[in-house]
Amino acid sequence: MSESPLSQSPSQLSQANLAEADDTSEAHAISEAHAASEAHARSESTVVLETEGLCKYWGGVKALDNMSLRFHERSLHGIVGPNGAGKSTLLNMLCGTYKPTAGRIIHNGDCINDIRPYDFARRGIGRGFQKTNIYPQVTCLENCCIAAQRRVGGSFNIFLPKNSSQLLEEMADQALAQVGLESRRDEIASHISYGEQRQLEIAMVLATAPSVLLLDEPMAGMGHEESQLIIELLKTLKKDYCIVLVEHDMDAVFELSDQLTVMVNGQHLITGSVEEVRDNSKVKEAYLGQGDEVI
């Protein structure tokens, strides 16, 4: 693995160590030490989003059962589990698409179970979808303008020309710059590559100025290089946002997560640092199976 420009930044020592953890045993030892100090720091950092005994039943099927999790500011919380573990269900409830059967979702101290789906985004809970979910007919810039327009207002004004705001365009440009898509600014969204579309989707979420980013498999269906791009992007983003990442790519999750939750059959198995999860025998048994001694 080549060294990323990011890992050279002195302020990001801990992440750099995590990133290099696969390389050498020396780095591995340091990273463990850092993980410990990080875990300590985390217990003091603010909880942005929290679930308390969250349940979702589809008739008799328990898609999600008694899930209590805490998502911290400026950190990335990975959620893994086999297919059907209820990861997407959890994410869908965190962003208001599904209503919980029982339990509470708490954002910045308020219970937000009963607010409308669109209010989740207004509160700063932004969501990326599992399948690419953009507006394919319009340009990348316009995609971000749609997302950012809620912040400038005037969305119900039928007489205000849409391109009248410099501020709006700047916001959209900024979001595109954050994910590194400036060069694709004026291209139609359906004409850019799949990986870029996934980046665009993240840019759209960023354009809404969220505090929490819920990402559902942003690396699904991507080649190695494209995934690497997203990993680098998420590393940068987790400095500023609380990110909840559902992902199948285990290497990526281990590399990125500050905290990791493993789910099986709608049940919570374990939450902890990457090392804790990695070494847990229950996890190996339930999810990783044999042949994973590499990690």
Partner: peptide
């Protein structure tokens, strides 16, 4: 004028992709 307005922009978005537009915080 309506289709070229800010309202029109969101209406177009609602037409193309209501789920995404809700997730962006608009009352579809």
């Amino acid at each position: 004028v309506v289709t070229g307005s800010r309202f029109g922009r969101i209406m177009e978005a609602v037409k193309d992709n209501p789920a995404r537009t809700t997730a962006l915080g608009y009352n579809v």
